[in-house]
Design a protein around this nucleic acid. Structure first.
Lengths: 239, 239
DNA sequence: CCAAAAGTGTTATGCTTACACCCATGC
DNA sequence: GCATGGGTGTAAGCATAACACTTTTGG
C-alpha cells in the first residue's frame, strides 16, 4: 500500500477557490402527548458544547440535498417514511466559529405511529437526543433558534393552507385528535363545529368505519384520502 | 517574495473533507412593454456554450448569501435598489458537469424606473446579456429552466397573497398599469372593477393627486403606501 | 345517574364574482 | 364627433364565524 499521506494525517481535498462546508439540518416535528415537539441533540463538543442543536450533518460528495436530509434523519432517528420539505438556506459567514458553513434546513413531519416504533433517545452518535416541547425549549446552539422559529412559522402557514395536519397523526384518528393538533400548532383554540365542517368539506379525510373506544362515548375514526396524500407529495418537492 | 506556488499556478485551498462549490443565481424580473421579462446571459464557455443562463456566481469567502446575490446583481445590472428574496437551493450532484455545485437561487424584482436608468445589455463580463419575455424563452443551460419555472410559480403566488405587484412599476402608476402587471404575471384576464375595488380596499396604494396625461382621458396616479413597502421588507428576509 | 367527550345546524356577516354603461380627452 | 382608455355600482352566491345543546359511553 502506497498511501500518499501517512495514516495519522487526513486526506486533503484541494480546490482553486475557497469553498464553504455545506450541511443539512433537520427540524423534525412530532405530536406526542398533546405537545408539538422537535428533536434536538445535545452537543458533545465545542463550539456550543452541552447546548442543544438541530440534528444534521455534512452532505456527501455525490449526494443530493434531499437525500442527505433523508440519510441524516435515518441515522439520527431510524425513520424513513417521513414528510420532508426544504425550508431555507442560511449562510452568514460567522455562524459557525470554526469554518465557513452553509446550512440547508429541512423540516420534517413524523407520524405518531412511526415515533412509537422508533427508538429515538440516544440514537445519535453526536450525543444525547431527545424531544422538546416547542413551547418550552432550551437554549440552542448556532442560529438554530432562528431556524426553528422560521420552521414553526412555515408549519403554521402550511397547516392553514394545505392539509398537512394528519401527517403528524396515526393512520386512523378522530376529529378531536386532529383538532388538538391544529390547536397546538396554531397555538389558539378553534371552534369544534366549524373545524369539523371545514375539514370534512375539504375532502381530504374520510371515515374508516371504525370507532375508537375510550373512557367515554366512542369516536368515529378517519383516515386521510389517497388524493390528499398525493397532493402533498406533489407539492413538497422542487419545483 | 517567496510564494509557495509559482505564479502560473493558482493557490490551492485544502480541506479534510470534500466541499461543493456554492453559487447564487438570480432570477431578475422586470416589467417592460407589457411583458414580464427575465435577465439571461449567453454563456461564452462550455459547458452549455452559447446557451442562455441565469446570472450568478460564486459566493465570497466571507460573504453572506444575500450579500452575494446583491453583489452579483450589481455586477451584472448595476442596480442596487431591488427586492430580493431567497427562492430555493438546488444541489443535484450532476447538475454541473465540471464539479459539484450547490446553487442558492434568489428572485429579484426591479422597478421600471430603475430598468430605464440602467444599462443592462452587455453589462456582464460573462457574455451577452438581455431581457427575455417569460413566455418566449430560449433553451436554458443547466437546470435553469426548472428554477425559472419555480420562480414564476412563487411570483404568482406572492402576487395573489401579498402586494408585490407595484415593485415592478415606477413609483407613480395608474391602476390600469397595475392591472396589466397582474394580468401578465398571472397570465389571465382580470375584471377591472373587481381589481380596482380589491387593490384599493387592501390599503396598500394611495392616490398621489397627480394625473397621467395620455392619448385619452387622463388617469389618476397612485403610489404604494409606506406601510405596504415596510410590510414587504419585513416579510422578505429570513426568518 | 353523573362525568366526560362526541356529535350536530342555523343565522348573520363579509367577501367574491359577474356584469354594462357613462366620462374625459386627443385628434 | 369619434375612438380610446378611464372610471363607476349592484345583486347573487359562497365561505366564515359565532353560538348551545343532545348523545353516548364508562364508572
Amino acid at each position: 500500500m502506497n498511501e500518499p499521506f501517512p495514516e495519522t494525517k487526513t486526506h486533503r481535498y484541494q480546490y482553486d477557490y475557497p469553498r464553504p462546508a455545506v450541511t443539512v439540518d433537520i427540524i423534525l416535528f412530532v405530536f406526542q402527548e398533546d405537545q408539538l415537539r422537535v428533536l434536538l441533540i445535545k452537543r458533545a463538543n465545542d463550539p456550543f458544547k452541552a447546548k442543544w442543536a438541530l440534528p444534521g450533518g455534512f452532505i456527501g460528495e455525490n449526494e443530493d440535498l434531499y437525500d442527505a436530509a433523508l440519510r441524516e434523519l435515518k441515522e439520527e432517528t431510524n425513520v424513513s417514511n417521513v414528510y420532508l420539505e426544504q425550508l431555507y438556506t442560511v449562510g452568514k459567514p460567522d455562524r459557525d466559529p470554526r469554518t465557513r458553513v452553509i446550512t440547508v434546513a429541512y423540516f420534517a413531519l413524523l407520524s405518531a405511529e412511526e415515533v412509537a416504533q422508533q427508538e429515538v433517545h440516544g440514537a445519535s452518535d453526536a450525543g444525547e437526543a431527545r424531544w422538546w416541547d416547542i413551547y418550552d425549549l432550551p437554549e440552542l446552539a448556532f442560529d438554530h433558534q432562528a431556524i426553528l422559529d422560521y420552521a414553526l412559522q412555515r408549519l403554521r402557514w402550511k397547516l392553514e393552507w394545505t392539509a398537512l395536519g394528519f401527517l403528524l397523526l396515526p393512520s386512523e384518528f378522530t376529529l378531536s385528535e386532529l383538532q388538538r393538533v391544529y390547536e397546538t400548532i396554531l397555538h389558539e383554540p378553534l371552534d369544534k363545529r366549524n373545524f369539523r365542517r371545514k375539514v370534512l368539506a375539504a375532502g381530504v379525510i374520510e371515515p374508516t368505519g371504525n370507532m375508537r373506544a375510550g373512557d367515554h362515548r366512542p369516536a368515529r375514526l378517519y383516515r386521510f384520502t389517497a388524493t390528499a396524500v398525493e397532493m402533498e407529495q406533489a407539492r413538497r418537492r422542487f419545483p
